[in-house]
Simulated scan of single mutants.
Amino acid sequence: MTPPPIKVTCSNCNLRELCMPTGLNEQQLHRIDDIVATRRKIKRGSTLFRNGEDFTALYAIRTGFFKTCVATEDGRDQVTGFQMAGEIIGLDGIVHDHHTCDTVALEDAEVCVMPFDRLEELSREVTALQSHVHKVMSREIVREHGVMLLLGSMRAEERLAAFVLNLVQRLHTRGFSSSELVLRMTREEIGSYLGLKLETVSRTFSKFVEEGLVEVKQRHVRILDTEGLKRIVNSQHACE
């Protein structure tokens, strides 16, 4: 039996600064509270929305980790991104009014549901909200360009180093350690995202350990030499 939706307010959420615009007055915050009326719990391995489903809402992640993926012509799942608390997902559905990917929870998660028609209506009145939605969309475009750079011109070591640095930086923004992280995704999923084989991901992690850059215990990764990882990422520019 599905539990009833839980009322939540943006005005007292500890992730407000990450997924909501700043500078809103109390009245504007309450109006957004009325839109974000419910939150949904998603069990690990369950799908929040699927490719082809009607687009009705954006989702702000309160807790947990997600991956987005699309099915390739040969039936494989291609991972297109990893999303965490404070980030907004569902933007893929805006263009054609239906979703173009599957979004799967990598651990038990919770999202705030923001019906898009009501969000759009309020955005016309609250310019700060409209600007924020545009920034979120722009951030997605920048992220896509970053992935294209990863897949188009970087060696395996550069791809994995950039991935680890980006992940720990995003987590640090949310109050976590700047040098330690727990990988919520499998090495196979990392490989799918980075365009690498599973064996290459495992071998590259081992290489980083041997070189004293990281310490790896199953899914727990501790960065020992941040500057060393940055040098790997920037090495191609030094060679140009």
Rank of each mutant, 00 (worst) to 15 (best):
I88P: 01
V147I: 12
T200Y: 09
T47L: 09
N12S: 15
N234V: 00
I88D: 02
Y59C: 06
S11H: 12
V147R: 15
L129A: 04
P3Q: 14
D97N: 13
T80N: 06
C10Y: 02
E120K: 14
E121M: 12
M114V: 15
D97V: 02
L181K: 11
G93S: 09
E87H: 10
G152F: 07
Q28A: 13
L160P: 05
P21D: 04
S123Q: 05
I88E: 04
T100H: 06
T56I: 08
E211V: 02
E110C: 15
S177T: 07
Q83V: 04
R50K: 14
P115R: 06
V111I: 10
E211S: 09
S11A: 13
N234Y: 03
T9M: 04
D97Q: 11
T226R: 10
M154Y: 12
T22H: 13
M148V: 09
R44K: 14
G86H: 13
I42H: 07
E110F: 14
D92E: 11
A162K: 08
F176T: 00
E140V: 03
K135R: 12
S138Y: 09
D74Q: 04
F66G: 11
T2L: 15
D92P: 05
E180H: 13
E73I: 00
T186W: 00
R139T: 08
I141F: 08
K217T: 11
A60H: 00
G90Q: 02
T38M: 10
G45T: 11
M1Y: 11
P4E: 14
R39S: 12
E227W: 02
G146R: 14
H237I: 03
A57V: 07
T72L: 00
T100D: 02
T173D: 15
L122S: 03
V216Y: 02
K197P: 05
A37M: 03
H172V: 07
H172A: 15
H145S: 07
F82S: 09
F176N: 01
S11R: 11
G152E: 03
E53W: 13
C101A: 12
L198A: 08
C101P: 00
L171V: 04
S192K: 03
I6R: 14
G195R: 06
D108L: 08
P21V: 06
G64I: 06
E110Q: 15
L229D: 08
S192T: 01
V182H: 14
G195K: 07
V221P: 04
R62N: 09
G52N: 11
G146T: 04
V133D: 06
L229R: 13
A128W: 05
I223P: 08
V113H: 05
R159G: 08
D102I: 00
D108N: 15
E121R: 13
T103E: 05
Y59V: 08
L194N: 05
V182A: 11
S178H: 10
F49I: 09
L171H: 15
R44P: 03
C239T: 14
K230T: 02
V216W: 01
R39A: 02
I32L: 15
L48Y: 03
A57W: 07
C112D: 01
L196G: 01
M185P: 01
T103W: 01
E120S: 13
R174H: 04
